[in-house]
Design a protein around this nucleic acid. Structure first.
Length: 243
DNA sequence: CGCGTTTGACCTGCGC
DNA sequence: GCGCAGGTCAAACGCG
């Protein structure tokens, strides 16, 4: 009995009679050609699957980029309660009633993957936050939560937390401003971390995808008695040759 | 009682 | 000027 890496029971028994060996050798050439043809077909199928996978991967990357664009504040719209003056004066906690425009700097994005059963918009990043508002935006059905840093009373930092449009399990956190107090350990992913991690995960998923493909092929071959018989004969022949 | 959350009202900028 | 959308305020409420 021979157990292959595919888990196929080949039920190989050495041929002790010369006529059996001769018969196996006669059929071997033709069957090998047939197997080569099947192998070629499988390779072609695999190529098609790989191409499809490549296309899907590109599509996912595009969706991720769109997702980033949606959450980056548009320069054409009012976004902040602090005007340019606030950036220079720095000490005002309340928004000016005049111009509310502000340069697009001091904004960082972070991503946090959450449990699918967790519907909250709570992100623990080491700082202390006080929620002061929640709003449903036009582009995203999930609500956006507004937080102010309450770690220090004068800290001007705000953050917005919203679920990703494309991935409900992914929280997107947008930080505005810089903390004017002691740094805390941030343990959430930065934008670059997330993108890199996404690529890594994609690679991992590709590995998983390949595993699944191999497993399916193996299962298919396991159920094919002709293949098992031919494989058993081929291995038997090789064993006999070695003898 | 203090603190944080919820939520409707309000404010502001922008496009038409 | 008006409507829309995003952002903020503040009273009400809940919880420890």
């Amino acid at each position: 009995m021979v157990e292959t890496f595919l888990g196929i029971d080949l039920n190989v028994t050495p041929f002790h009679k010369h006529d059996d060996t001769q018969k196996a050798n006669d059929d071997f050439g033709g069957k090998m050609n047939q197997m080569c043809l099947e192998n070629k077909k499988l390779r072609e199928s695999l190529t098609v699957i790989c191409e499809n996978n490549k296309f899907l991967q590109n599509h996912v990357n595009q969706l991720l980029m769109q997702d980033q664009d949606l959450l980056v504040p548009s320069p054409n719209k009012r976004k902040f309660g602090h005007c340019d003056k606030c950036n220079t004066c720095g000490s005002s906690d309340s928004p000016h009633q005049g111009s509310l425009k502000r340069p697009n700097n001091g904004i960082t994005k972070a991503y946090r993957r959450t449990d699918p059963s967790d519907n909250s918009l709570v992100v623990k990043d080491g700082y202390q936050w006080r929620k002061y508002g929640q709003k449903v935006t036009r582009d995203n059905p999930s609500p956006r939560a507004y937080y102010k840093c309450s770690f220090a009373p004068s800290c001007p930092v705000k953050r917005k937390v919203q679920r990703s449009v494309n991935d409900a399990n992914l929280l997107v956190v947008i930080y505005e401003g810089e903390h004017n107090h002691e740094d805390c350990i941030e343990n959430i992913e930065t934008e670059n971390d997330y993108i890199n991690k996404s690529r890594f995960n994609t690679t991992t998923d590709l590995g998983k995808f390949d595993d699944v493909l191999v497993e399916k092929m193996a299962n298919s071959l396991r159920r094919n008695p002709d293949f098992i018989e031919e494989l058993a004969e081929a291995i038997t022949s090789k064993i006999l040759e070695c003898d």
